[in-house]
Computed example of a mutant assay.
Amino acid sequence: MVIRTMIPSMAALAILVLAGCNNASAGAQSGAMDRLSAYDTIDACLYRNPAATDRTACIGEYAQACEQLAAEGETTAGMLACRGDEYEAWDRWLNESYRDLRESLSDESVVALREAQRSWIAHRDQDCLFLASLYAGGTLERVEQASCLTRKTAERAIELLHWHADYPPF
């Protein structure tokens, strides 16, 4: 119980240090506490949740807090900005995980991984286009596509992060 109270909830952490949708420099100018970027927010969440199954809880955490805290967060433009920031952060995690995995593989496996990744990207993009099409012409079309790209990219990043543990003999 004592340990639990020492670890701040995401909402409290977000209020203190969340990247307010790219306003860290404004905070620095006004003397306010600098805020974490989406990448650093995800990093903190992944650190708190070391198991792959627990890490899926990190997906959407930044965007949700950003939407609640940013002045324009609950508008379509605000949602897109928050989700876009989170997508970019997860894409960075994906690229880093891919690079780290690639460095541990044989040349033959690197080629196979590259082809698998290219196929995965095409599949992800088509799935997200389909889901967005369910809202064709509506304000949620772009929001759904951004959410889908973020979710699928995050899931793949987590999968690649845990490849060594989940797929021996690495």
Rank of each mutant, 00 (worst) to 15 (best):
E115I: 04
R142F: 01
D34L: 15
C148E: 00
A146Q: 10
L161D: 15
S97G: 12
D100A: 05
A71T: 14
T76I: 07
A44F: 11
Q117N: 14
L161P: 03
D100H: 00
A12L: 13
Y98L: 05
A71P: 14
S30F: 08
C21H: 03
R35D: 04
A44R: 14
G137W: 12
V2L: 04
A65P: 01
P50E: 10
D54E: 15
A146P: 00
T53Q: 04
A154C: 05
S119R: 14
E96F: 11
L13I: 01
S109V: 02
I59L: 07
V17A: 06
N23L: 09
L160T: 02
G27D: 14
M79P: 00
T41P: 11
L140I: 01
A89F: 07
L94I: 06
S119P: 01
R48W: 08
E103K: 10
G84I: 12
L13Q: 07
H123G: 06
A81M: 11
R124V: 03
R156V: 00
S109N: 04
E67K: 06
M10A: 07
S9M: 10
A146L: 00
Y87Q: 08
V2K: 05
P50Q: 10
R35N: 08
H123T: 15
R83T: 04
L105N: 01
A57R: 14
T56F: 11
E61V: 12
E155S: 11
Y87K: 06
R102Y: 09
R102E: 05
A11L: 05
G137Y: 14
I7W: 08
D43H: 03
R114K: 15
A38P: 14
A24I: 05
A112R: 14
T76Y: 07
H164I: 15
Q145V: 06
L80N: 11
E103F: 09
A44M: 09
C45H: 05
L140W: 11
C66Q: 06
P50K: 07
P169C: 02
G137C: 12
L80D: 10
A116P: 00
R35I: 02
A51M: 02
R99T: 14
M10V: 05
G27I: 02
A154Y: 06
A63Y: 03
L94D: 08
E141I: 02
C148K: 01
G60L: 11
A14W: 00
T153F: 03
D125K: 03
S104A: 12
Y87T: 06
M6Y: 09
I158C: 09
A44K: 07
R55M: 12
L149P: 00
G20W: 05
R99K: 13
F170M: 08
S97D: 10
E74L: 03
L134N: 08
A52V: 00
A14F: 04
A89D: 07
C148N: 00
D100T: 01
Q29G: 13
A26D: 06
A57V: 14
R156S: 07
A38R: 01
R83Y: 08
E88H: 11
R102Q: 04
D40Q: 15
M33G: 10
Y62F: 13
L101P: 02
L101S: 00
P8L: 09
M79R: 15
I59P: 03
F170R: 14
D100Q: 06
D54I: 00
I121P: 10
R142P: 01
L161W: 14
I7R: 11
D166W: 12
N23E: 13
A44E: 06
